[in-house]
Design a protein around this nucleic acid. Structure first.
Lengths: 118, 118
DNA sequence: TCCAATGCTTCCCGTTGGAGAGTAGGCACC
DNA sequence: GGTGCCTACTCTCCAACGGGAAGCATTGGA
């Protein structure tokens, strides 16, 4: 299959859109160290609404990046875990967060300079 | 500075939010092979609206990832180019797109399976 | 009887993004 | 002299998206 992220129809673009989603990267990062319940993921990521977390998790499940396991208990319990495919993404995502942590200061400085310039 | 992408206030989260923006990655990728005019970037990325392209470019400029050069000509000409900081992101972004191109088929298959199951 | 716990789902509404038209301003052409 | 063109925006209008809060289902416990 010919991959061209610049073409709107190409699946690689859609994959990029998923990764380039505000919450997906954070969810994947959260699940990096193993299986977690819905509530654990929710409290780990500051600022997600329940709606978006559910939506994000469903999207990741659909793309085969996480598995969703429902336990027939009361109160209900749902576990999420990265699949092998999902774990294969950790390298790339890690590179991104590493870059972010290393270059925070540069970016903050650039912003201050840009904002002060006006 | 203590980096914690999971905290909404932390700059690293904001940096991640920028990268995890639908268009930023595509713009950075487009500028990977050198300086480009606004119109060139616009036609390279299928599906961006002018508004969002301008907004994305301004955001990247603010964060010190691209430079914006206005030439006093008629018709107007504006060049965009990655800064050193911006180029330092290429590795991480490249890893992401590489993953996307390598795993397209897996994702497409997972989607088909998920959609068919319901 | 009423509440708590958990993972959603639904509703309302403010914010965001897309489509398309408008703008500036010097230049070529009739 | 008037008309139109060129590019990089900028503005306006409207639909879609996302956040907040409340509702739901189920069953054990005070």
């Amino acid at each position: 299959m010919q991959a061209d992220p610049f073409s709107a129809q190409c699946p690689s673009r859609q994959v990029l859109d998923r990764i380039g989603d505000r919450w997906s990267v954070l969810v994947i990062l959260t699940l990096a160290d193993g299986r977690k319940r819905y509530g654990e993921v929710a409290s780990a990521i500051e600022g997600v609404s329940q709606k978006m977390l559910t939506q994000t998790l469903r999207g990741l499940e659909r793309d085969g990046l996480v598995t969703r396991t429902v336990h027939a208990e009361v109160p209900p319990r749902v576990d999420y875990e990265l699949t092998r495919l999902g774990r294969s993404l950790l390298g790339a995502v890690g590179a991104l967060t590493d870059w972010a942590t290393v270059h925070i200061d540069d970016v903050v400085e650039a912003r201050a300079s840009y904002d002060g310039r006006r």
